[in-house]
Nucleic acid binder design. Structure first.
Lengths: 314, 314
DNA sequence: TCACGCCCATGCAAAACCCGCATCGGTCGA
DNA sequence: TCGACCGATGCGGGTTTTGCATGGGCGTGA
């Protein structure tokens, strides 16, 4: 095998021996620090000098000195060894879930209320977990969960995949968005009957299937029938139409944070009092170590925490 | 030996195996790249995972994937390996003398002329050689050369040490520094006779022994005797006294670059026409690999180069 | 559906490596 | 000049690592 001279690469053990010898300037003490005897340490350093092709230590039987090249190499060796330690540390932190990156899918509507609270919670309870955000509709989230493009999705039911574990993370009431001057604004609270035969900006069946189906069901159960004016999927677009006086809209209460001028909100009584549900879903076999720590943020006790925290903000 | 489980530190060989496997995502090809067979490579990676306490690769019989921790560790491992290569390179460059640091002692007077030219030369001919500058008088330089605090000294004779190798690097003429209004300024050239019985700012015997002894000898040989007014060792201090009209001074021609207002210079004829000598000296057994490359800058042919270069500047 | 191929893990014996002990050779100080 | 100190080296033993052969799991194609 002629590869010997070709394989000119040192090993970390040799670096550790060299650093010990360079710092002690005494092979015996250096060997003791390395928990070995002096002869092997001598050999490790000879080997290192051989593969480097450079004399690193000037040794007489009376004194050990660094050569100029050895001085430079000592600095480099220390840097390398420091780096190996920090690399091991960082990797173990990732593996333990202490740190890491979670890729999170979320729907536009959840970005108004739940997501900000969640990120606030993360900043204080899991600061080493990075969260990469990807806005997408619920069906795309399910697809992305399967392929691994996102670790966790914040999405609307139904979620019918056996590969997923799910957790309800929030329930919201519906509120009515009404333009300034709408006569229904005199009431403190509305019912679905108040929208019977009235123009209503509606959700699109494709882009916002969940809200579309939910409202359809609610109105049917309540025996009321609004006049659908326009079908949209983005809540802020719907509010813009409301502001233009085209009609009312029914939106999750968190949408009030959008603060459109000349658009006012009133609570609406519905059969389940908080019909707007948001679920977290993730692949049961997801091996991202940061997942467990991230999911802790979603557990009920954490949710209460963060809702209390959000309340204090006001 | 019970230290096995205690020595939880990986080796570079394991990093190289891991990087190969992580990049190929195929143990067989990775092993081929590492010039070995697949089983040892498997074992190296198992060993690495064991000492790290972290699973880095997810391997089924059908596919090899990086775990989240493995992704992070791959980046770290590449960084470490890059660093080892650059460390070896840098160290070999130092050892070969291509790069390095020379600590240079110099006298204040040589800082006015020779040193700037030398540094200019270094910048273009040996840019990888750093020069650390230490101003000190000639006797201190001799002492520092012996102890190794400086590699090379730019100093004045006599240099009587057998440990040193010396090289004359410059010869300068003396010029007279005269205050505005001095009657001798009408002459284009002076002789030492022009200073007979005239006030002269003189060099101190301790701090500037070389110039002191040289002037004393020159005047004696010329049969002239100036009136010593004050003894100083710093040329710029002497010129300040000249400017104040206290008397004339004799300084190396390079001191003209100090440009004192109201002080004008005239050449002086002396027996050796250029009596101000500057030597480089270094320990013959200095092992700094950069020394040879640095000394090349001082050789006659280089000196001519840099004087030509300095001339072009004007 | 079954057999084949691909691929990583593992058992095993040989080779290589590394360690510690003993000792050598050189240098400094008493 | 002798002894103490210190790094280098010869050598035997034990551990590690390697390569070969093989096992076992999982897709794939007939």
């Amino acid at each position: 095998m002629a590869g010997a001279s070709f394989w000119s690469q040192f090993e970390l053990r040799q670096l550790r021996c060299f650093v010990a010898a360079a710092e002690e300037l005494h092979f015996g003490r250096a060997a003791a620090r390395m928990n070995m005897t002096q002869p092997p340490l001598s050999r490790q350093i000879q080997l290192l000098e051989h593969v480097m092709g450079v004399k690193l230590l000037d040794r007489t039987s009376r004194a050990v000195k660094l050569t100029p090249a050895g001085r430079v190499f000592l600095l480099e060796a220390r840097r390398i060894l420091r780096l190996t330690e920090s690399a091991a540390l960082a990797t173990r932190r990732i593996a333990s879930g202490e740190a890491g990156t979670i890729t999170l899918g979320f729907t536009a509507a959840s970005g108004y209320s739940f997501l900000p609270m969640l990120l606030l919670q993360r900043a204080s309870h899991a600061p080493n977990i990075d969260v990469a955000l990807k806005e997408m509709v619920s069906t795309d989230q399910a697809e992305s969960l399967l392929t691994g493009r996102i670790d966790v999705g914040l999405l609307r039911p139904p979620i019918a995949r056996t590969e997923f574990t799910t957790l309800k993370v929030s329930e919201e009431r519906l509120v009515a968005a009404l333009p300034v001057g709408d006569p229904r604004l005199v009431q403190a609270t509305l019912t679905l009957k108040d929208f019977d035969h009235q123009p209503l900006v509606m959700y699109a069946a494709e882009g916002a299937r969940y809200f579309h189906d939910m409202l359809t069901g609610l109105f049917e159960a309540a025996g009321a029938a609004p006049i659908p004016i326009q079908s949209l999927s983005q809540i802020h677009s719907m509010l813009a139409l409301v502001r233009a006086g085209i009609g009312a809209a029914l939106v999750p209460e968190a949408a009030q944070s959008l603060h459109f001028d000349d658009v006012h909100f009133r609570p609406v009584e519905t059969d389940p009092i908080a019909p707007v549900e948001l679920f977290a879903a993730w692949r049961s076999d997801n091996d991202n170590p940061a997942l467990e720590a991230f999911l802790d943020l979603l557990r009920p006790e954490s949710i209460e925490d963060l809702e209390a925290l959000a309340a204090e903000e006001h």
